[in-house]
Amino acid sequence: MLEEVVATRYVTPLREGGSLPGIVEADDLGTYVMKFTGAGQGVKTLVAEVICGQLARKLGLRVPELVRMWLDPVIGLSEPDQEVQELLKASGGLNLGMDYLPGSIGFDPLAYRVAPEEAGRIVWFDALINNVDRSWRNPNLLVWHGDVWLIDHGASMIWQHNWPGARASAAKPYNASDHVLVPFGPDVAAAAAELAPLVTEELLDAITAEVPDEWLADEPGFDSADALRRAYLEPLLARAATIHERITFDAPVRTAPAQPPGWLTDHLTPWPHTAGRKDRRDGGANEEKGGGR
């Protein structure tokens, strides 16, 4: 079950995304990026964040820790921005927090190298969840302490917006032509061989159980939260076995950009990082929980 915290101070909005997430401090002394139930995209984006984020973590990909975050809208009374105040008022109760990674920067494919093995894992994972939001225009990747971290999965699993057509939607190929990691020659076949066997019914059952009942209530066509959880589980389980065969590219996979700036890339090491890792817990920058703790 996701850890539960209480928001104690609203720090500042993040205006990069359309949902207007905010940086928030919590009662565990952590700092989080808070995603709100009252945002225009609705609660289904938070469901996708939990399922996809937790699945990625179980598969060994780096995603900031997710928490259940309780919000009392009173903490936003001093916020001068009327739009933010209205968002906080509409989001009282249970929301989603993502560990804030201080000092992280947005991934730039012209400045950083990614090994084909790691690129393959990320492309395969995005194909599994049908993530259309990892393009060169909007990578939704961060570089933190030399590692690539995945964020923002709210636009994934598009079939959740039309359950009667979910089976047909989940069976469609995944066009990776626009994926930000295509220039690095992602080894999708190796990723499938490694990761697909890990996506079991038991794993998905445990992950969907982490979605709060409140976010699954009153969905047309389902008589319980558990029935809806099953509807999330089945497309992912079916896709895991064969999605690597249905990843398409409009153009041949290119090699990595030539001569990226060495001063930015020389410190990066290929995945997995098996040697020389510093335990970031010693410095308060726990690699699982990030530097906000």
Rank of each mutant, 00 (worst) to 15 (best):
M1Y: 05
L2A: 09
V6C: 04
A7I: 05
A7R: 03
R15P: 00
R15Y: 07
S19I: 04
S19C: 08
L20W: 09
I23D: 02
V24D: 02
V24N: 02
D28H: 12
G30T: 11
G30R: 05
T31E: 08
V33D: 05
A39T: 08
V43M: 03
K44E: 12
T45S: 12
A48H: 09
C52K: 00
C52Q: 00
Q54M: 12
R57G: 04
K58N: 12
L61P: 01
L66V: 09
L66Y: 11
L71T: 03
P73D: 09
V74Q: 10
V74M: 12
I75P: 06
I75R: 06
G76A: 06
E79W: 01
P80M: 07
Q82N: 07
E83T: 14
Q85C: 03
Q85M: 06
L88C: 09
N95E: 07
L96S: 05
P102W: 12
G106W: 08
G106V: 14
F107C: 05
P109S: 11
P109W: 14
A111C: 14
A111G: 09
Y112A: 01
V114Q: 00
A115Q: 10
E117S: 14
G120Q: 01
R121E: 09
V123G: 03
V132C: 10
V132K: 04
P139R: 06
N140D: 08
N140V: 11
L142P: 01
W144E: 01
D147H: 14
W149I: 02
D152P: 02
H153D: 00
S156T: 15
I158A: 13
Q160K: 13
W163K: 04
A166I: 02
A166D: 05
A168E: 15
A168R: 15
P173A: 13
Y174I: 07
N175G: 07
N175D: 15
S177H: 12
D178Q: 10
A192K: 05
A193M: 09
E194K: 10
L198T: 02
L203W: 00
L204K: 00
I207M: 01
T208S: 11
A209H: 13
L216M: 14
L216E: 03
A217Q: 15
F222R: 04
A227L: 07
L228Q: 00
R230G: 10
R230V: 07
L233V: 03
E234S: 03
L236V: 11
R239H: 09
R239F: 09
A240R: 07
R246V: 03
A251D: 10
R254W: 06
Q259E: 14
Q259R: 14
P261L: 11
P261F: 11
P261D: 14
W263D: 06
W263Q: 10
L264E: 03
L264V: 12
T265A: 15
D266Q: 12
L268D: 00
L268P: 00
P270V: 10
W271S: 07
A275F: 06
R280T: 04
R280A: 12
R281V: 05
A285R: 12
A285Q: 13
N286G: 10
G290T: 03
G291A: 10
G292T: 09
